[in-house]
Design a protein around this nucleic acid. Structure first.
Lengths: 212, 212
DNA sequence: GCAAATTAATGATTTATTCAAG
DNA sequence: CTTGAATAAATCATTAATTTGC
């Protein structure tokens, strides 16, 4: 049942590599036009749609976060255990705990020779490197408020939102991977996009289990 | 700052009435084309966009649910208190507790004389009344699997999803209410839509607070 | 080796939560 | 305080890895 009616996108290795590189480069929640570009570029390597890109970033972001949380949780646990242990040992001489948390580093893979890779790279929202202002020109619908926004926000919290809609009308589609179909646009509508909030935030609402 | 750069949609009374009536009629998560229709119709009464409709249903659904939950919670609380009370009173003679939960009934307001209302009504997804199959024809991308789906699912779990994208390019937009602007479509893309799952589900995960 | 059976990853949706305008 | 808007968390569902018995 693999070929004819494959329901979900299965990314090619190239697509995956590029997406991951983008993620590492700082892209988190690409907005509509960014998604378009990405999709266009990635479609060179195989069938892909905007929603796939959208979901990929959403999922990847969420799962990195969760991975990190788990790691932190475990470390805290260990830390506490160790603390307890040390306490039981009654003040043996202090030494360093193995507690570095390397916040993922870029392995700098050989992506440069993939077609479109470099052109796609310019989308990166980067670690606070300021191409922020340049994006503003394309999106006007929040300009009104932008004026009275305070400095911190205008520097960091820059976000533009777009709304979009595409009805999927293509027949069940092909096997799974490869092929480069024209994305069939049909109608208008809404979805959300970009911000550049920081990762690594410690988990909120782990407790607070009451509903009211 | 009210007129020039009003950021958020403020629904006219007519729009609100119609939306509410639709909700009462069973519409919960309209899909792309339904949203289009609704928007088109409602735009007769004032400025409105698809995302407004989309969000309205999302929020309204969520808040009805939460209202209900609160109500149920309170009632359970009362019930238990009462039980305790009764227990303390040591088996005084049994009597009925005030525990009916009228699962919102339709007040049948006078909406019929609003233009477009009746035409819009045909969108309702209604309480399991089967116009389900008719919708299938428009959306083909899950047809493949539909074949091997078991009977229960094919009867109840019917769902179609659409993807959409519209980039908002209009300048900050007008005062707030009234005006009927042409929705400016720019590009393609993703968002989600319809299912007909039932309301009134008791809240899950109230406990289970551990992260691992 | 090789499928059937399990399990792990991850694409796709839905639901809850939070933010902020009015 | 209400509610439109947006994001994040939780959940569902399918595909890929893998284990297992033969």
């Amino acid at each position: 049942m693999s070929p004819a009616g494959s329901t979900r996108w299965c990314p090619t290795p190239e697509q995956l590599m590029i997406l991951e590189e983008m993620y590492r480069s700082g892209v988190r929640t690409p907005n509509a036009s960014q998604i378009q570009h990405i999709t266009a570029h990635l479609s060179f390597y195989g069938k892909i749609e905007g929603k796939n890109v959208f979901y990929w970033f959403q999922n990847h972001k969420a799962r990195e976060r969760q991975k990190l949380r788990r790691k932190l949780g475990k470390q805290l646990q260990q830390q506490q255990q160790q603390r307890l242990y040390l306490h039981q040992m009654q003040h043996s001489q202090p030494h360093h705990h193995p507690l570095h948390l390397h916040c993922f580093e870029s392995p700098a893979s050989s992506l440069q020779n993939l077609p479109f890779y470099n052109s796609a790279k310019c989308l990166q929202q980067g670690g606070l490197s300021a191409d922020a202002s340049s994006k503003m020109v394309n999106y006007t619908w929040k300009m009104g408020i932008q004026e009275r926004v305070d400095i911190e926000k205008s520097l960091v919290g820059m976000y533009d939102r777009d709304w979009m809609m595409m009805v999927d009308v293509a027949p069940p589609s092909l096997p799974c991977c490869s092929s480069r179909p024209p994305l069939k646009t049909l109608e208008l509508f809404p979805i959300t996009a970009t911000n550049l909030k920081e990762e690594c935030s410690s988990s909120k609402h782990n407790l607070s289990c009451n509903t009211n």
